Simulated scan of single mutants.
Amino acid sequence: MPDADDGFGELWDAHYDDVLSYAARRVDHETARDVAAETFLIAWRRRNDLPADRPFPWLLNVARNVLANEARGHRRRGLLWGRLRDDRDRHAPVADVATGLVESGRIGAALRRLSARDREALQLVGWEELDPKDAAIVAGCSVKTFSVRLHRARRRLAAVLAELDAEGHRPPITSLQGSRQS
């Protein structure tokens, strides 16, 4: 008798935690859980489209799109509440602990000065530890295009870091003690 879920349980077991981590580095934990669940719902619906040899980058591409939809919805809700309360400064997303720690340092300061595309290329390789082929799938482009983006993003990051050093930017050292979630 064939497997009733067509191996989807194995896909879930192999990649759910990684998809959740990917989302949690970009949004708060509760939203990340929703993003991961939505990602696997889409994967279930489109399981015939899943590449058998490399499902993880495909899943991250779906998660990236779900995050983009979430961000658009968040912005729309923020604008709506801003109009209702005449408070336009209320649309900043809640950051997770890892993002808070990274953004408090020199690298975080440099990343904030880069474009979203540059940040995404660097994060896919640095945080998600994807090779250029898998990262290109997530980014929705060819491997050559992604490699060029990554090269340029690294050059821009180096330039921004040099600027920060020239400005004398020295962020305070943050203790990891007490900043972990339980």
Rank of each mutant, 00 (worst) to 15 (best):
A153S: 13
S142A: 14
R64W: 00
N65T: 11
G178I: 13
L67V: 11
A32I: 06
K133W: 08
V97Q: 12
D13E: 14
A110D: 02
N61F: 02
S147Q: 11
A121Q: 10
H169K: 09
A162K: 09
I173H: 06
E163M: 06
N61P: 01
F56H: 04
W12P: 03
E103S: 06
H91Q: 10
E128W: 00
Y22L: 03
R119P: 09
R170T: 15
A98E: 09
A71V: 04
P172E: 15
R54A: 13
P93L: 12
D13M: 08
R154V: 11
A95T: 07
D3P: 12
A92I: 10
C141P: 03
R54N: 07
R119M: 15
R64E: 01
P171M: 12
R88D: 08
P2L: 15
R47W: 02
G105T: 00
R106S: 13
A166F: 08
R112V: 09
L161V: 02
R90L: 06
H29W: 07
L164W: 06
K133G: 04
R83Q: 07
R117Q: 14
P93Y: 04
A158T: 12
D49I: 10
P132A: 11
Q177S: 14
A14V: 07
R83C: 13
L59S: 02
R156E: 14
Q181V: 13
Y22D: 00
N69C: 09
R155I: 13
A116S: 11
P57F: 09
E128A: 15
T39M: 01
Q181M: 14
D165R: 14
T145F: 12
G9V: 08
A43T: 03
R149M: 15
H74G: 06
L11P: 00
P93S: 09
R76N: 07
V66N: 00
A153V: 11
R77I: 10
A37K: 03
L41N: 03
F56Q: 00
V66F: 01
F40S: 00
E120Y: 07
P55H: 02
G105I: 00
V143F: 02
L150P: 05
V62Y: 01
G73Q: 08
G108F: 12
V35Y: 02
S179M: 07
L114V: 03
D89H: 07
A158E: 12
R112C: 04
A135Q: 01
V19G: 00
P51Q: 11
E70M: 07
P132D: 04
G7D: 05
D89G: 15
P171T: 03
D134S: 12
R112G: 05
R33E: 14
F146R: 00
